[in-house]
Amino acid sequence: MTPDQIKLVQESFREVVPIRETAAALFYEKLFAIDGSLKALFRETDMRKQGAKLMAALGFVVHGLSRAETIVPAIQDLARRHVGYGVEEHHYPTVGQALIDTLEAGLGEAFTPQVREAWTEAYSLLAGVMIAAAREVQLAA
């Protein structure tokens, strides 16, 4: 990611923080609309708490983008835990689409093509790290 893309992601996320509960609910609504089978992964989950965890994780990643080496171990641990929850590699594009759709809805006109590109790049990096860590777990099993 370029420094400008990192800045765009961080600045746009500041606009999401005040509406984080709504954004989290919208994210899961969009996620389940794209792939209803994912609901099964959350059947015993308090979705309000899950939404808070989602927004906290996003905040951690967004704020750490300018020093990615400091957040990679935590992202890898997150991915390893997600394997245990039943998350599979083919779910990552779906999550990415739900995230982009949520940001577009939540940010409105502020979700410019440049902001979209920056978030897409950020998610691609995040998903790449998570997929690699998940593959390690699966190969070890």
Rank of each mutant, 00 (worst) to 15 (best):
A122Q: 05
T112F: 01
A105L: 14
S37N: 13
L54S: 06
G128I: 10
A105H: 12
G84I: 07
L78H: 04
A140R: 14
V87P: 03
M1V: 12
E89A: 06
V115S: 13
V137T: 12
T102Y: 01
V9Y: 11
Q5H: 15
T45M: 06
E44H: 15
A105W: 04
L54M: 11
G59V: 09
A140L: 15
G64E: 03
L26W: 02
K49Y: 07
L65V: 10
A105I: 11
V87C: 01
V115N: 08
G108Q: 09
E121N: 07
P113W: 12
T45S: 06
D101N: 06
V95N: 00
Q138Y: 10
R116W: 09
E136C: 09
G64W: 07
F32Q: 10
A122S: 05
T2C: 04
I75A: 06
A68M: 14
I34Q: 08
T112E: 00
G36L: 05
V62R: 12
T102G: 01
Q10C: 10
A134I: 10
A133W: 02
L58D: 01
V115A: 07
H82R: 10
L26Y: 02
E29H: 10
A79W: 01
E89H: 13
A132S: 14
F32P: 09
P93W: 02
L58N: 01
L126H: 03
